[in-house]
């Protein structure tokens, strides 16, 4: 029994759509659950402010939900588009697109839940700071969503690029590896960005006078926390847009697949770690505003050291693409 390429495209599209939505649903659900738990705790502490806490819980959950809505969109496209191609590279591109968006939604979903939960708790402690807390929750959550938007971009590029002229070996590994690089590298930065924003919301509710400084430091910390996801995006772009000559060997393909896995998995730890480092800085600046300079300097040094392992992963990924 012979199966043609359209059969395999359909198989890849439906399985990839399922994996995409399955993975993509995890993070948002965890983040929203955390927000709801914190909102309940907040209302039990201060029932008089329950209306505002309830409202900010729903807003926070809606932002966390957006990551899994991206995954839903990509899954729908995979299920209901009739993909046509003459090269089997497209089969792997469809699989890569599903994995990119599925993994990419996990971090942002979990991360966005943290500031929303902390804002709810903060409103029970300092009802007067409600507006400021809502603003900071929105800023923090929005930055948390950027890694999942990177993944969405890569998923769309993989879905709608024409790979017909590329030979199967080793290009199947390049497109599949690009999906893994973008998807996995988004996990750490999403969670890390959320931890930073959480401490910012908590700090504002404890010492409202520190709001301005602490918010600046939060944005600085979140920006650096995004860098591992940006390194993953960079490797994904190189893997997709560089044309690899046809080969009879299998090792070049596995070098490209290894490159995607290396920067993808390697970016998770530094993303979370930089988030933890920066959350410590933001937390203690709001409690000890006088020593903002000392704490910021130490925070940046600590984050730079945590970044070093992501740089090692980038070096190995680039060596796998360009040298071996």
């Amino acid at each position: 029994m012979e199966y043609d390429i359209n059969f395999w495209l359909k198989i890849a599209a439906v399985s990839s759509g399922g994996i995409c939505m399955g993975l993509g649903a995890m993070g948002a659900a965890i983040g929203e659950g955390y927000t709801a738990a914190m909102a309940n705790e907040a209302i039990s502490r201060n029932p008089n402010n329950s209306g505002e806490i309830f409202k900010s819980m729903l807003v926070g959950q809606a932002i966390a939900e957006s990551a899994s809505i991206f995954a839903l969109v990509v899954a729908m496209i995979l299920l209901f588009t009739n993909f046509e191609a003459t090269s089997f590279v497209m089969v792997w591109a469809l699989l890569g697109a599903g994995l990119a968006m599925g993994f990419g939604a996990i971090g942002s979903g979990v991360g966005s839940g943290f500031p929303a939960g902390a804002a709810c708790l903060g409103m029970s402690r300092q009802p007067a700071m409600g507006n400021k807390l809502t603003t900071n929750m929105l800023i923090g959550s929005a930055v948390c969503q950027t890694p999942s938007i990177f993944s969405l971009v890569i998923a769309f590029i993989l879905l709608f690029t024409n790979f017909d002229l590329r030979p199967l070996w080793p290009n199947w590994a390049a497109v599949f590896g690009a999906g893994l690089a973008a998807g996995l590298s988004a996990i750490g930065s999403g969670i890390g960005g959320g931890i930073v924003a959480k401490e910012n919301c908590e700090g504002i509710s404890r010492s409202p006078e520190s709001a301005g400084t602490a918010t600046n430091i939060m944005l600085l910390g979140q920006a650096i926390t995004q860098t591992p996801a940006i390194l993953g995006l960079l490797v994904a772009f190189i893997l997709i847009f560089r044309v690899y000559p046809e080969t009879e060997l299998i090792s070049p393909a596995f070098a490209l697949l290894g490159s995607g896995l290396c920067i993808g998995i390697g970016a998770i730890g530094p993303g979370i770690g930089e988030g933890i480092a920066s959350s410590g800085g933001v937390k203690w600046i709001s409690r000890n505003l006088k020593h903002t300079g000392d704490i910021t300097r130490l925070m940046l040094v600590g984050m730079a050291v945590a970044e070093s392992t992501a740089i090692y992963a980038l070096v190995i990924a680039l060596v796998l693409i360009f040298v071996v």
């Binding site: 750490g188 770690g273 933890i276 480092a277 410590g280 130490l298 040094v301 600590g302 945590a306």
Partner: peptide, 11 residues
């Protein structure tokens, strides 16, 4: 591991 661990140390 090092990424997460170094972050905790810095925090």
């Amino acid at each position: 591991g090092p990424g997460v661990g170094e972050g905790m140390a810095a925090a």
